[in-house]
Design a protein around this nucleic acid. Structure first.
Length: 289
RNA sequence: AGCCACGUGGCCGAGUGGUAAGGUUAAAGUCUGCAAAACUUUUAACGAUGGUUCGAAUCCAUCCGUGGCGU
């Protein structure tokens, strides 16, 4: 794991080849086959070298979330273990990695209708309405949860309306047990170097046709999968809100913010062993475990 | 060397006499079903000098700077 552009892809391929195994990507955007120029997937040649799961495996029209990933990745890791002892996971989506490693609290199934209704009402009536609904229906969450955060409020509300119970009652369940060992390795670079790599990557994405790709996806700009750094900013440009140079500058800033959030997330996990994105350094960490 | 306008935090920007909105950047952080998402916190400014006034970012003068017009 590690921030975007730190060098996870190349390193994970080297490690997977060393162990003659395969890779499960843990990236919430690279799984979409419709997204290419903006999400820094492994190249076709790299995909040829080592088999990757969760790359191009889903469509932007499907719902993909942490629970979907958990189920998918657990299945695939068993397939890999059928042929060997070691599997490699590589990615930057902290929540997905966490869910794979220790599970996610089980919450009863929620019918799609409930969520759609809440979303529609929220879009129409705004945050205050949402807060009121949660206050009325789930005072427990309202007193303890993040009441400024629409996502969390919507989640709390759908769980309450669907199950009759507060989402808080479902939280804090026992961590899932896994029947394999996990070694967590974090890749890091000095901030300045990482930022330079981010800038270079963004310029490369533009050169490799991100604006054209975005053009073709514009009719899907409302989909969650398109709420993605690189795509949103170009949508803004295409919608006449900003110039292309300004959009590119915004992509660089937003990618930096993203990288920072990733580092904040990963740093909290004390099980992570940190090193530079260097093959020998990583192999040392693995052998010491 | 004349006329006009302007000079507020890194940037944008509100504020015409009562002690400085907001946005953005930057920094730090939160996180169990949209996570490349969403959210939270923090820092910091009235060009300079002098004057009027109980009180000036707001009014006056001079200077400095920027832009425009003129020459």
């Amino acid at each position: 794991m590690g921030p975007t552009a730190v060098g996870k892809t190349a390193l994970s391929i080297a490690v997977a080849k060393h162990f003659s195994t395969q890779i499960i990507s843990a990236d919430s955007r690279q799984c979409f086959k419709e997204l290419n120029a903006g999400v820094a997937k492994p190249s076709p040649a790299e995909l040829q070298e080592v088999h990757h799961y969760f790359i191009n495996s889903h469509s932007i029209h499907e719902r993909v979330d942490a629970a979907v990933f958990e189920k998918y990745a657990l299945e695939k890791v068993q397939e890999i273990f059928a042929h060997g002892d070691i599997a490699v996971m590589a990615g930057g989506t902290g929540l997905y990695i966490k869910t794979f490693c220790s599970g996610i609290d089980k919450v009863p199934f929620i019918s799609p209708g409930i969520r759609d209704k809440i979303l529609a009402d929220y879009t129409l009536n705004g945050l205050e309405w949402l807060q009121q609904e949660v206050q009325i229906n789930d005072p427990l969450y309202f007193s303890r949860g993040e009441i400024q955060n629409p996502h969390r409020l919507i989640r709390a509300l759908e769980v309450k309306l669907s199950s009759g119970k507060s989402i808080i009652e479902f939280q804090g369940q026992k961590k899932a047990a896994r029947d394999f060992e996990i070694i967590k390795i974090g890749l890091e670079l000095p901030r300045e170097e990482l930022y330079q790599r981010i800038y270079d990557r963004v310029d490369a994405m533009i050169a490799h046709g991100l604006p054209e790709e975005v053009k073709d996806l514009q009719c899907y700009q409302h989909l969650n999968a398109l709420q993605t750094v690189g795509y949103r900013e170009i949508f803004d440009h295409r919608n006449g809100l900003v110039s292309l140079p300004d959009a590119i500058a915004a992509i660089k800033i937003n990618t930096r913010h993203y990288a920072k959030r990733q580092m904040t997330w990963f740093k909290k996990d004390k099980e992570v062993k940190w090193c530079n994105p260097d093959f020998n350094a990583v192999m040392n960490l693995i052998e010491n475990e």
